[in-house]
């Protein structure tokens, strides 16, 4: 029996050996440790004390900031990610072929993603979307009242979504790589059949790209749920104004490293894992219907 198992798996094990060590030592073990801590009071410096489900109860039933952080994060994920992916796909499609000087444009459009959410960007963002910022100058052309977009609680999150959309470079590059993988002869034979560019887009490009679209959707959703740096650096560490940029992981970080409640933070982490896993699971289930592999 064991021997059979060995024979079946030995080749795969050869390829997976480094990954196995990594996932167990650096993945599963710390995860189990954090799962354990989620049932404890742990101030980081002294041994944790078991409190059962208490962290989870507090979180779900009596922590209004937790609910607020969920709200903020859901808006960020479900408004920001679709916009960002749409942007990434459109530009990848345009920049894939056609216009002269494409390589230059590709590089330029990737610049925002090179910068990352750095402090310089944080300062810049506050200037652009501040009272005297460029953004007001631009929107005033369309008759929009000037505002301090970063510090108005009803628009602060919107500026962070703009940042996410603006840094669409990574999914764009992945889309580009995917577009390159589509065999040219498919387009050639379609042209012979007299298909227009829109037909090609919907009958060839998008179906052939579905594995990559699927990948981008899954990964961007996982990433956006865990978004931390934009809120931490640009939102000003506390999630203000009025908790309007209190991202889930920012609140988790505050609990862990400012308030020294690592047990509570661990419980929040596992709750987030369940939420993300649910959405990812649904995506994988739906994938059978719309993702086409060349196998």
């Amino acid at each position: 029996m064991l021997l059979k198992l060995w024979h079946k798996n030995k080749i795969a094990l050869l390829f997976l050996a480094p990954w196995f060590i990594g996932i167990i030592v650096l993945g599963i073990v710390p995860m189990i440790a954090s799962l354990y801590l989620s049932f404890t009071n742990y101030n980081m410096f002294q041994a944790p004390t078991w409190v059962g489900l208490s962290n989870y109860q507090t979180m779900l039933f009596s922590d209004s900031r937790f609910i607020q952080s969920l709200k903020v994060t859901f808006i960020y994920v479900f408004v920001g990610v679709p916009l960002q992916l749409l942007m990434a796909f459109t530009l990848a499609y345009i920049l894939n072929k056609g216009v002269k000087g494409l390589a230059g444009f590709r590089a330029i459009y990737y610049v925002p993603s090179l910068l990352g959410p750095s402090i310089a960007i944080a300062i810049l963002w506050r200037q652009i979307f501040g009272t005297n910022g460029v953004f007001n100058d631009v929107v005033s052309i369309f008759g929009v009242q000037p505002n301090s977009w970063v510090s108005d609680p009803s628009t602060a999150l919107f500026t962070l979504i703009v940042l996410l959309v603006w840094q669409f470079g990574s999914p764009m590059v992945i889309f580009l790589a995917g577009l390159k993988q589509i065999p040219e002869d498919l387009y050639e034979s379609a042209s012979i059949d007299g298909a227009g560019s829109l037909t090609k887009l919907f009958k060839i490009t998008i179906p052939m790209l579905t594995p990559i679209i699927f990948f981008n959707v899954v990964m961007q959703i996982i990433g956006a749920f865990q978004a931390f740096t934009p809120a931490y650096i640009i939102g000003g560490e506390r999630g203000g104004p009025l908790d309007s940029t209190l991202f889930y992981t920012l609140y988790l970080y505050i609990k862990a490293f400012t308030e020294f409640q690592m047990g509570y933070a661990s419980a929040m982490a596992w709750m987030l894992l369940v939420i993300i896993a649910t959405f990812t699971g649904l995506l994988f289930l739906s994938a059978k219907k719309w993702v086409f592999y060349g196998e």
């Binding site: 506050r126 501040g130 009272t131 301090s148 970063v150 510090s151 602060a156 000003g236 104004p241």
Partner: peptide, 12 residues
Amino acid sequence: SAQVSAEYSGMP
């Protein structure tokens, strides 16, 4: 105002 204060919070 609160909004102006918020605009400057976290700024150098």
